[in-house]
Simulated assay, not measured.
Amino acid sequence: MRRTPASAAEIREWIQGHLIYPKVVLTPTSFAVDRLVASGDGEFPGGPLSFALVFDIKDDQVIDLAIEPV
């Protein structure tokens, strides 16, 4: 049975252990209530690329996330 990480340090360690190349840096370019648009650049051809991250929020928590090309 998998245990959910309990602290920021455990989450950071898990992310570092599961990184898949190429690395991508997302730079926010605009934000609305449930939509963040960001430019993604990194170690891949054809960048930077723009993405929209669309959130469903309930009780101040993200319950769903969709990532769409812009």
Rank of each mutant, 00 (worst) to 15 (best):
G40P: 03
I15T: 08
E10I: 08
V62T: 13
V25M: 05
A52L: 05
F44I: 00
R2P: 15
H18N: 15
P48E: 08
P22I: 09
E68A: 05
T27Y: 04
D56H: 03
Q16C: 10
E10P: 05
R12D: 09
Q61P: 00
A9K: 08
I67Y: 01
H18A: 07
L49S: 02
V24A: 04
Q16T: 03
V25W: 02
F55T: 09
F55Y: 15
V33I: 12
Y21R: 15
A66P: 01
F44S: 02
V62L: 11
A6V: 06
T4Y: 04
L65P: 09
F51Y: 13
E10F: 06
K58I: 10
R2Y: 10
L26F: 15
G47T: 04
V70W: 06
D59C: 03
G17A: 14
F51A: 12
P69W: 00
L36Q: 03
F55W: 07
A32D: 07
R12Y: 07
W14E: 12
A32L: 06
I57H: 00
T29C: 05
A6T: 12
D64C: 05
S30I: 03
P22N: 08
M1I: 11
G47H: 03
S30E: 09
A32T: 14
E68Q: 04
G47I: 04
Q16P: 01
I20G: 02
P45L: 02
G40E: 01
A66W: 06
V54Q: 11
K58A: 15
R35N: 05
V62Q: 09
V62M: 12
G42M: 00
P5D: 06
I20Y: 04
F44D: 00
E68K: 11
S50G: 05
E68L: 09
A8Q: 12
R3E: 14
D41C: 07
I15D: 08
D64A: 14
S39K: 01
W14H: 08
E13C: 04
D34N: 14
A38L: 13
P28C: 08
Q61T: 07
E13S: 11
F44A: 03
Q16D: 14
G17L: 10
S50V: 11
I20F: 07
A32W: 03
K23Q: 14
P69A: 05
V33A: 14
D60W: 07
A8R: 08
W14R: 11
F44Q: 03
P48A: 02
G17K: 14
D56W: 00
T4K: 08
D59Y: 01
I20H: 12
P69S: 03
D56C: 00
R3V: 13
A6G: 14
F44T: 03
G40K: 01
F55A: 13
D34W: 00
I63T: 15
V33S: 10
D34H: 04
V33M: 05
L49V: 10
A38I: 09
S7Q: 11
A38F: 00
Q16V: 04
S7G: 12
D60K: 13
I63A: 05
